[in-house]
Simulated scan of single mutants.
Amino acid sequence: MATSESAPVQVNARGMKCPWPALRAARALREADAILIEADDPIAATELAALAQAHGWTFAQLGDYRFSMSRHV
């Protein structure tokens, strides 16, 4: 089975209060292997990390409001 590397899907969740950034991330990862998400809710990092841990996905904080998440393929 061939795999192709594609650019992460961009998800903008700025201005949204949790749980919306986590819901947007989960929805995007239904169809993408990796996402970059921007979320400025103060608890977004905690919520996104918990979502990733619950699903076995990788999570990284790239900056104050930027995060990456990916599924293990």
Results as ranks from 00 to 15, higher is better:
14 R>K: 13
3 T>I: 11
30 R>L: 03
40 D>Y: 08
28 A>W: 05
65 Y>V: 13
32 A>H: 11
31 E>C: 02
64 D>T: 12
53 Q>R: 14
34 A>C: 07
10 Q>F: 12
32 A>G: 11
65 Y>D: 15
2 A>N: 15
58 T>S: 15
18 C>N: 14
36 L>R: 14
19 P>S: 04
41 D>T: 03
43 I>A: 12
29 L>A: 08
63 G>E: 11
69 M>N: 12
10 Q>C: 00
19 P>E: 02
28 A>E: 03
14 R>S: 06
49 A>S: 14
36 L>D: 01
37 I>R: 13
18 C>V: 10
3 T>Y: 12
21 P>F: 03
49 A>G: 02
46 T>R: 13
47 E>P: 00
54 A>R: 06
57 W>Y: 15
57 W>Q: 03
53 Q>S: 15
39 A>P: 04
10 Q>E: 15
43 I>H: 14
13 A>S: 06
7 A>W: 02
32 A>D: 07
29 L>G: 10
27 R>P: 00
18 C>E: 13
58 T>L: 07
52 A>E: 03
36 L>Q: 10
37 I>G: 10
35 I>N: 07
22 A>W: 00
68 S>V: 08
58 T>W: 01
11 V>L: 08
32 A>P: 01
12 N>I: 08
52 A>R: 01
69 M>I: 09
13 A>R: 05
56 G>R: 03
1 M>E: 15
61 Q>R: 15
6 S>P: 04
8 P>F: 06
64 D>L: 11
44 A>M: 07
32 A>V: 05
8 P>Q: 14
18 C>R: 05
71 R>K: 14
41 D>H: 10
50 A>H: 03
9 V>S: 04
70 S>P: 02
22 A>Y: 00
23 L>R: 01
71 R>W: 02
23 L>H: 00
48 L>H: 10
71 R>G: 09
50 A>C: 03
47 E>W: 09
3 T>S: 13
29 L>M: 14
44 A>E: 08
55 H>G: 00
18 C>Y: 01
54 A>N: 02
14 R>L: 11
59 F>E: 04
6 S>A: 10
50 A>G: 04
17 K>R: 12
44 A>T: 13
52 A>Q: 05
56 G>T: 04
52 A>W: 05
31 E>M: 03
51 L>P: 07
34 A>W: 02
31 E>R: 13
47 E>H: 14
21 P>M: 07
67 F>W: 13
62 L>P: 00
41 D>F: 04
60 A>Q: 15
39 A>S: 03
22 A>H: 01
40 D>N: 14
4 S>K: 08
26 A>G: 00
15 G>M: 10
28 A>D: 05
33 D>R: 07
71 R>T: 07
52 A>L: 02
13 A>H: 06
36 L>E: 14
51 L>G: 10
25 A>P: 07
65 Y>P: 00
54 A>P: 00
16 M>P: 00
67 F>M: 11
61 Q>C: 13
41 D>M: 02
50 A>L: 07
5 E>F: 03
15 G>T: 12
58 T>I: 01
